[in-house]
């Protein structure tokens, strides 16, 4: 059982997960550098191709499988391949469209959609491929999905949570949300639908250095709307980097106080000491030993803190 699954299913502890950086060359060396920064702080770290490397570096991966890039055959192959190396946490995403990325000329796949992919994962967890072919033994899987509490139609987003829960999702990472009122309504909706305690809600916050990345997210990342007063707050501050940090801390504290919320997912665009500062300010104590309970794959490169 993964640490993430253990904490969410068997304890009331708050969990922290993080988005793993894009490596863009110097793969394993860079992966180790980033892993060292994250080590001891997080219960799970996510990215597609690097999940196995992350596992070998002693962190617990959360493998994101995306409908945009792979058809149902490739998705099942990815799940089985990652399972072979002890990856247990999986997240199903529909994915941003190819036109939102830096290779907009690519062919989009979308052979499955997010809820279908959750059900496909549940099928493998039960010990069958989609075709019905048996998998023996079935891989141990802890299945999650994503949702955007800040995109229309707002009132329908909670019904999607119910749909993904019925399909087999046990946790739900949320898109970055700069509208506290929308997050509040969403989390209250999850609670009122009787889903608190059944599916763990994990909102996302971002560490940024100033107003530029806020503008970028607002203008270029699908589904993220940053209100102008939040951008202005950082832009007009005497010390924008400090103000941006305080803003993130506020959003993190606010998110953690919402019903049905069981933890926080952190995307670090700053790559500086504020990651440690944020975790400390949120009351997290860095683990001195590897907290993973299912760390079968270890090698000489494994990080020891």
């Amino acid at each position: 059982m993964s640490t993430l699954e253990h904490k969410l299913m068997n304890t009331t502890e708050t969990v922290f997960t993080a988005e793993f950086h894009s490596l863009d060359g110097n793969g394993l060396e860079k992966a180790k550098k980033y892993a060292d920064r994250f080590q001891g702080w997080f219960d799970g770290v996510s990215n597609v191709a690097t999940a196995i490397a992350i596992k070998q570096l002693g962190l617990e991966p959360i493998l994101q499988i995306v409908c945009r890039d792979k058809n149902r055959l490739a998705q099942q192959a990815d799940i089985m391949g990652a399972s072979m190396f002890g990856v247990e946490n999986f997240v199903a995403l529909t994915g941003d469209d190819v036109t939102a990325g830096d290779e907009p000329e690519a062919r989009r796949v979308f052979d499955t959609d997010g809820p279908q992919l959750v059900r496909l994962m549940s099928t493998i967890k039960r010990g069958e491929y989609m075709s019905g072919r048996k998998i023996d033994p079935a891989p141990h899987m802890f299945i999650g999905a994503v949702e955007n509490p800040a995109a229309p139609p707002f009132e329908y987003r909670v019904q999607r949570v119910a749909k993904k829960y019925a399909a087999g999702a046990k946790f739900l990472q949320l898109q970055i949300c700069y509208h506290q009122d929308r997050l509040e309504k969403f989390c209250a909706g999850v609670r009122d639908a009787g889903l608190a305690g059944k599916i763990a809600i994990i909102p996302t916050v971002v560490l940024v250095k100033g107003a530029r990345p806020l503008n970028f997210m607002h203008n270029s990342v699908p589904g993220i709307d940053v209100p102008s007063d939040q951008i202005a707050r950082v832009e007009s501050a005497a010390n924008p980097a400090e103000e941006a940090y305080l803003q993130t801390l506020e959003f993190a504290q606010h998110a953690l106080a919402q019903p049905a919320v069981r933890g926080l997912h952190i995307t670090d665009f700053r790559n500086d000491e504020t990651l440690e500062r944020l975790m400390t300010d949120l009351g997290r104590v860095r683990q001195t030993t590897n907290s993973s309970t299912t760390n079968e794959v270890k090698d000489d490169h494994a990080y020891s803190a």
Partner: peptide
């Protein structure tokens, strides 16, 4: 998509 809106609306 056959199962509702994506998060990019």
């Amino acid at each position: 998509l056959r199962n509702g809106p994506c998060g990019g609306v």
